[in-house]
Design a protein around this nucleic acid. Structure first.
Length: 447
DNA sequence: ATCGGCTCGCGCAA
DNA sequence: TGCGCGAAGCCGAT
């Protein structure tokens, strides 16, 4: 595995004892660099290998919808690990406390983690590193080109990060070796995990139910990919921005939870589809724009507030903060899809019902929240609140970057100045009507 | 249907 | 220092 994926959080000699992979962002067995890396150490040292997942109640106010998707995916992951003689342990509570406790109680020799640019994950890792006395290595198994290898600074836009990724793509876009049946067993048998009971007992917001149209887990992720490569990708370039066309991959929930690797998706795409504009457009979104979001969150701690937007946009929005708003809505009016705009309401309902709003509508939806709230700060807050509550892929760097792109001109250029938006790119109903059959979309979801 | 202007700043060439 | 051009658009002119 490429050494650029590695960051040593806590250095030192590996101690005698099992190797543990603390699984967090990359919840899968296949093509998981962190797991392969952990196993290579365990085999070399002739010690057991265990995977630990720490379930934090009320993580960034996630709801039953997201917990259900994640835990059912983990059920499959735990089973696959068992088949490879790798034990799986589900911990409950604050990872900053529970992971060190597990490490000490089980005399673990080394800890391996995965990469995540979000602040809370970084805080957890710092806390863990302070409390343990064995090596702690972090492996970027989420990105095609590891985030820290792409660039050492916040990139200005897609056009500045693109060549940096392209240069390294050949080196990093390769599958890792498969996990082998682990030769040494973990002596403490993990208790039989009662998944259904755990899901039923979570102390979380249960008002947002799981969705039926998309099924969690590695196998279903591959099936979804296969379906997209047969039915969707040939129309991707022309129709991906048509919310009625069903030309999107629908892979973002899987990629968000790491139930499928972006490398797997990219290599399958290259294998199965011709080298045309469709493939190029899909790989651009899968790799360049996703990794741009990771780059942003990793290098900018204000990724979830107005502090993260570029200077020209901040100044321009400030100049327009007192502009008259034709409509002003409160959070609950947005949430209940009660605006005057049937198109906006339909998008909101799509998100609430299906857990996934169409990509083009996400931009329109965010920009209208800016237009109809009393300040950009409030708009960002509401957009993030709703996104994280209802979207299966909430709390993802892509979500934060997308919202700041829409409301704050992040990674975008300035445009003609106008009311409220200032120089931030404007979008409106007429634009939607030019692009697709707005009435059909409203019929599907509006009501 | 198609085109240019809108407006800032990064990155590279020179 | 100059210059080309950019995450998904809008609008008016032709």
């Amino acid at each position: 595995m490429e050494s650029e994926r590695l960051r040593i959080i806590r250095p030192g000699e590996i101690a005698r004892g099992p190797v543990v992979y603390w699984m967090s962002r990359d919840q899968r067995v296949s093509n998981n660099h962190s797991l392969v890396y952990a196993q290579s150490f365990a085999i070399r040292e002739k010690v057991p290998l265990a995977v630990v997942f720490c379930l934090a109640d009320n993580f960034l106010v996630a709801t039953l919808r997201q917990y259900d998707f994640m835990l059912r995916g983990l059920t499959e992951t735990a089973l696959s690990l068992g088949e490879k003689n790798i034990s799986f342990h589900l911990l409950r509570g604050n990872p900053g406390t529970e992971i060190p406790k597990f490490v000490k109680e089980n005399k673990i020799g080394m800890l391996v983690g995965d990469f995540d640019p979000l602040k809370i994950k970084r805080e957890w890792k710092n806390e863990v590193a302070k409390k343990i006395s064995v090596p702690f290595h972090e492996i970027d198994s989420h990105n095609v080109v590891p985030c820290r290898a792409v660039s050492g600074k916040q990139e200005y836009g897609a056009y500045t990060i693109r060549p940096k990724i392209q240069r390294l793509l050949k080196k990093f876009m390769v599958l890792v070796p498969k996990i082998v049946r682990h030769p040494v067993s973990f002596d403490r048998n993990p208790e039989n995990i009662e998944w259904e009971k755990i899901i039923a007992g979570l102390k979380i917001d249960r008002s947002v139910p799981p969705v039926e149209w998309i099924k969690p887990g590695e196998k279903n992720a591959r099936a979804m990919l296969k379906k997209f490569l047969i039915h969707g990708i040939s129309r991707y370039s022309a129709e991906r921005n048509d919310p009625n066309a069903d030309a999107q991959s629908n892979l973002s929930p899987y990629i968000h939870f790491g139930q499928i690797s972006a490398i797997t998706v990219a290599l399958e795409t290259i294998k199965k589809s011709p080298d045309d504009e469709n493939r190029r457009a899909f790989l651009e979104e899968l790799i360049v724009r996703r990794e741009l979001s990771d780059n942003f969150c990793w290098h900018n701690e204000n990724y979830d507030n107005i502090g993260g937007i570029p200077g020209w946009a901040k100044a321009s929005l400030r100049e327009h903060k007192s502009d008259k708003r034709e409509y002003i809505y409160m959070e609950r009016e947005f949430e209940s899809a009660s605006t005057h705009d049937r198109l906006w309401n339909a998008a909101q309902i799509e998100m609430v019902k299906r857990g996934k709003m169409h990509g083009w509508m996400r931009m329109y939806w965010s920009k209208k929240i800016l237009e109809w709230t009393k300040s950009p700060d409030e708009a960002i807050r509401i957009a993030i609140y709703l996104n994280d509550k209802y979207e299966l892929d909430g709390r993802d760097p892509n979500g934060y970057a997308g919202i700041l792109w829409s409301i704050g001109g992040l990674h975008d250029r300035p445009w003609g100045e106008r009311e409220i938006f200032g120089k931030v790119r404007y979008m409106n109903y007429n634009g939607a009507r030019r692009k697709f059959d707005v009435e059909r979309y409203i019929e599907r979801f509006g009501a």
